[in-house]
Design a protein around this nucleic acid. Structure first.
Length: 676
DNA sequence: GATCCTCGAGTTCT
DNA sequence: CTCGAGGATC
């Protein structure tokens, strides 16, 4: 072999090896060599190609870096049209789909290929004799845009298919997406550079793919999943869609791991619910699942209606984001006097529930998002629960949109509003003179984690305070049946229940009582620390700054808050009244000796819904066994206990490699003896 | 002084 | 759940 031939051979081997590592890294997510070694191979290839430009091939992994900006994208006609799917939002529509399929095919039960529906951008990739020659957006389904240069930078897309005799022509259909974790990283980078953050992974993927400068695309963490083929010439004859997917996977195209084959409508719905339950834990965003009749001959027999196939259906989850109108911004007063702006929205359905309010946190947040009253806004349920205004649709801003101004006086009591120079929140300076703060203080006192007075809710507290029946928490213990029964929506029976609950709350623990007082900066955890450290309320009340600083997790700020609270004569008086009324707890004995177990000293984080235990129950049992329950996952977390529909904590635990337990695992651990 | 971790506080809807 | 801020740690 001549020198040129040898170099050609070395180049070929290098490319093959790099392609394989790319596949393992980007598609299988299971690299087999360290990054540094990969970089070495890559550099060797780059150097060799630089010295022998004539031997550079278009499918070389070095050609992924991005090319010069284009003036515009060229139009591309798809050989086989990329049709849209019919959508279903209700189970009834899925049932109707299955019935039509069975009737159309004159069978009693159909077999379906099922897969998640990615929330990304549909694209088409053309491979000629195994080499990627063209990539295009879906466009209107018949004509898309040529984004070949951009798609070449996507590492999960093979530039050459892994086959000795690849099909003459293969159109691969799939979705370009950004993984959730990559999206968060990307936004952090954007923020650090002072550039605009993306609202969601889909927008980020769309924006990245539509860059005329492919070097920008190359810097974005795009990935790809194939979901089918269009025109295929010289490909093996296959009978089922599921086989097509296996074929694509064998060519080293990335395909979704969650795909499956099910029978009948029950199979479809089971899959829909299974994926729905897994949704939060999946690394990518999806907006539903797709059902396709698996048999390709049957698909052909069913054919198309208008522009959508009759053999496939997209069964969508309720939208997690929606556009609506911001009608007004109100201000709420919290227990500490914090003024929180709340968006009043035109009711809109998000994630299956109707949203009318959403917090805007504080003034800075409103400014940052540039939200104005009257704006069209995008609303999302953060972590699937709490509604939040994501962004403003600038193009739809009405000319009369008004900026929000934080009021100078408390909307409830008229006291001056203060904002400390280094704090984000504005506060009402009225203290307990402010009815809003008084009400919140009483609600906090009665809260489940504090004194646990069942049935004492917002409506009742409003009435009690407004009618001057109660002005401090101690007054609760002076209420009687006739007073309560005179209130709205308070029949004799409910009045008796509330009195009973108030009576029952008298028997409590020191930690709960300290928490219930609502001392600034003293929450549940600090209250427990204080109770354990001082053993009695009198010892705590007598403690000076220095004594307080001895308590773990108490620093100067918290110590100051506590000392200040007890120095206030009014507070001491209220506490005296409550003790006189019979509020009591076991005192003296500082903390029972925690049972020694495998759980002692370990930190747990709970996420999702456990089948047999409540969150509180699980927490109590872990603490009784000497463990700690923290709110968020970090490297110091020993175990994450995951139930059904876990949140982002589950993903984080996986990322950090923390042991994950289910309820059974937790119970076993609780019962297990301590490690030697 | 910077960084990481945890806690506190506020929030929605059924 | 998310944000901000207090505390601990290096």
């Amino acid at each position: 072999m001549g020198a040129a031939g040898e170099i050609g051979e070395r180049l070929r081997r290098l490319r093959e090896e790099i392609d394989l590592h790319n596949y393992r890294y980007y598609v299988l997510d299971a690299p087999t060599i360290p990054d540094a070694e990969y970089d070495k191979l890559f550099r060797e290839l780059q150097e060799l190609e630089a010295r022998h430009p004539s031997l550079v091939t278009p499918d070389s992994p070095t050609r992924r870096v991005g090319a010069k900006p284009l003036a515009e994208f060229a139009p591309v006609s798809h050989r086989t049209p990329m049709l849209s799917l019919n959508n279903a939002f209700e189970e009834a529509e899925a049932l109707a789909f299955d019935r039509r399929v069975c009737e159309g095919l004159e069978i009693s039960e159909a077999e379906y290929a099922v897969e998640p529906k990615f929330d990304g951008l549909a694209i088409s990739l053309v491979y000629e004799n195994g080499v990627l020659t063209q990539g295009a957006t879906r466009g209107d389904g018949y004509t898309g845009e040529d984004v070949t240069a951009n798609l070449r930078t996507v590492k999960a897309i093979p530039l050459r298919l892994a086959a000795d005799r690849p099909p003459r022509l293969l159109e691969v259909r799939g979705e370009v997406v950004i993984l959730k974790a990559d999206f968060e990283r990307l936004n952090r980078v954007q923020a650090a550079r002072g550039e605009k953050e993306f609202a969601n992974p889909r927008n980020a993927a769309a924006g990245s793919l539509r860059q005329l400068d492919s070097r920008i695309t190359a810097s974005r963490p795009l990935t790809f999943y194939a979901y089918g083929w269009g025109t295929a010439e010289g490909a093996p004859g296959l009978a089922r869609h599921s086989q097509v997917m296996d074929f694509l996977a064998a060519l080293r195209l990335p395909v979704c791991k969650e795909r499956g084959v099910v029978r009948g409508v029950a199979g479809l719905l089971d899959y829909f619910h299974a994926i729905g339950a897994k949704r939060a834990a999946l690394p990518y965003d999806i907006d539903g699942v797709v059902y396709k009749v698996n048999d390709l001959v049957q698909q052909e027999r069913l054919g198309f209606v208008a522009r959508a196939p009759r053999f496939a259906l997209a069964h969508k989850f309720p939208a997690e984001e929606a556009a609506t109108e911001l009608l007004d911004i109100d201000v709420q007063v919290g227990r500490t006097g914090a003024l929180t702006p709340v968006a009043r929205l035109k009711p809109v359905s998000v994630g299956g529930v109707t949203v009318t309010n959403a917090t805007l946190h504080n003034e800075d947040e409103i400014r940052r998002k540039d939200v104005r009253i009257g704006d069209a806004v995008i609303v999302r349920r953060a972590g699937d629960v709490i509604p939040e205004v994501v962004s403003v649709i600038r193009e739809r801003r009405p000319p009369d949109a008004r900026e929000f101004v934080m009021p100078a006086r408390c909307p409830v009591c008229g006291s001056r509003v203060m904002r400390l120079p280094d704090e984000a929140v504005a506060r009402c300076s009225g203290g307990l003179y402010c009815p809003a703060q008084r009400k919140q203080a009483i609600l906090h006192f009665a809260g489940r984690r504090a004194m646990d007075v069942d049935g004492l809710g917002e409506k009742l507290v409003d009435q009690l305070v407004d009618n001057h029946l109660v002005s401090t928490a101690a007054d609760l213990y002076r209420l009687d049946q006739p007073t309560l029964a005179g209130l709205e929506r308070m029949a004799e029976k409910s009045a008796a229940n509330v009195l009973q609950a108030i009576e029952a709350s008298k028997k409590t623990t020191l930690a709960r009582f300290i928490f219930a007082l609502g001392i600034r900066n003293v929450g549940e955890a600090t209250a427990k620390d204080l109770a354990r450290h001082f053993g009695s309320l009198d010892a705590l009340m007598a403690a000076d700054q220095e004594a307080l600083l001895q308590v773990p997790d108490v620093g100067p700020v918290v110590a100051q808050s506590i000392a200040q609270f007890f120095a206030e004569g009014h507070n001491r008086e209220v506490i005296g009244q409550m003790r006189a009324a019979g509020v009591r707890w076991p005192e003296g004995a500082p903390a029972r000796p925690a049972a020694l177990s495998a759980v002692s000293g370990k930190t747990f984080v709970l996420t999702g819904t456990l089948p047999g235990l409540t969150r509180e129950g699980a927490k109590e049992r872990i603490e009784a066994a000497g463990g700690k329950v923290a709110g968020s996952v970090s490297r110091k977390t020993d175990f994450v206990v995951a139930g059904a529909e876990p949140g982002s904590k589950f993903a984080k635990a996986r990322e950090l490699g923390i042991s994950i337990l289910d309820e059974d695992g937790l119970l076993k651990l609780l019962g297990a003896p301590p490690p030697e």
